[in-house]
Design a protein around this nucleic acid. Structure first.
Lengths: 240, 240
DNA sequence: CGCTGGATTGACTCGGATCAAGTCGAGTGG
DNA sequence: CCACTCGACTTGATCCGAGTCAATCCAGCG
């Protein structure tokens, strides 16, 4: 299985053996969680940094009127904000979507690791920049894309992220998100999302079934989404 | 006038005299820019960190179809991402809104300052967390708030941020944003934004005029917005 | 003093929400 | 093995918020 967190960071920097063993030590005692368990709740005083080793989670906010907005998805290897410990209070919650394996790294441990392993710090900063760029892409989607474009764009994002960590099986990939969750991610109603999915199915672009997505026509999906993968910042800065 | 950048960071940490003079040195040679000048353009290879000392700017993206989405506003004291230099390519642009005074800090200078002044680093991380929380609030607005709520929410955010840096003159504050820009921030058309502003004026909640906003009924504005200022993270973590 | 870009208003259209029934499918217990 | 149940998915009918298109209006300014 390996350690997804290490795998991810290796994509963002040249980690030494020492770096990797420090990361392995820091994530050595993970806990299991069932699906739909809050890992962090809005209003909480933040604790340790959490790292998803297996399974999916989402960040979300509940509004006064009871509606929910999903803000981001965490896939294996992803973590919450590095400096979360500096906050007095969480402004959003994080909940598992599937059964998960989650490691926690205390603030002290984190600081020590970042001080002692500059390349780890560097890789984590890149990961954080990608997360921020993804949030900007979401804002752009919500503000300026139609519902079908928005759906296509999110599927492109999730597909590429899954592929980067080896979670795809070519035209298909495991996508454990209910239509309700997706609707709450995209700022639309479940009913309307369902119609959009139907349209994408009829156009033979993609088929979403319980737990998995089949991308029938990747080129058309990218074209509908107006997808530009630059924001995922896979290309590393070459020279120092 | 003072240095807005230092003032802002002092709100996020206990800076020593040495910290402050390091910041003063780093921002000692600012440049002036006219309104509507790109400071950083999407696709550029990132250069130094930029810091707004005077004036407003915005982050934005242009979509393939030519529409624009504003992603955030930078007010005096705000800066772009600390680790911007780690990226191969910008995923969005930053443009001045008003005539501005902007300092730049090279990557080397920045690294040295963060290493030598831990409290500066700490304050900057908090500032970054606030920026991220603000992005999450924008996603939430776009996804789950009606247009009038969205407008009210943005006005609350901008008002509070302006007040934090002493830029308000009680019920009024200088808001140099055209309706077109606001519409591109809120994911709506200028025509519809104009109607929403009219509604807020008729309800005697607020009046937006060229260059300034008068908040007639703050309580009602907050209530319409469903505004919870927690995400601006003004309350610092008390104990260490 | 007319030009120009933002602001404003009206008439019409349409995407997506809402309301209201179903249907399907996986797990549960008899 | 089958009936039951509960949650998730589908579909149809209708409504309304917001977009579109098209005129003005207005203030600042060369």
């Amino acid at each position: 299985m390996g350690n997804r967190f290490i795998d991810k960071l290796r994509g963002f920097g040249e980690l030494s053996e020492a770096d990797m063993s420090a990361l392995a030590t820091a994530t050595a005692r993970p806990r299991k969680f069932a699906a739909r368990q809050d890992l962090i709740r809005e209003g909480d005083r933040p604790g340790p940094v959490i790292v998803m080793l297996e399974g999916w989670a989402c960040r979300y906010k509940i509004l006064p009127n009871g509606t929910r907005q999903v803000l981001a998805y965490l896939m294996p290897g992803d973590s919450c904000d590095l400096h979360i410990g500096l906050l007095a209070e969480m402004d959003h919650s994080i909940q598992t979507v599937t059964p998960s394996v989650v490691a926690t790294i205390s603030r002290g441990e984190m600081d020590a690791m970042m001080d002692g392993h500059r390349e780890i710090a560097r890789a984590m900063y890149v990961a954080q920049l990608v997360d921020q760029a993804t949030m900007r892409a979401w804002i752009t989607s919500m503000g300026r894309r139609t519902s079908i474009e928005r759906v296509a764009h999110l599927m492109c994002e999730l597909y590429l992220r899954a592929r980067n960590i080896g979670l795809t099986d070519e035209p298909t990939f495991g996508l454990p998100l209910s239509q309700l969750l997706l609707a709450d991610s995209l700022g639309m109603t479940p009913v309307h999302l369902n119609r959009v999915l139907k349209e994408l199915r009829q156009k033979e672009v993609m088929v979403l079934r319980r737990g998995s997505l089949i991308i029938t026509d990747p080129a058309k999906l990218v074209q509908i989404a107006g997808f530009d993968e630059n924001y995922l910042h896979r290309r590393l800065r070459s020279a120092a």
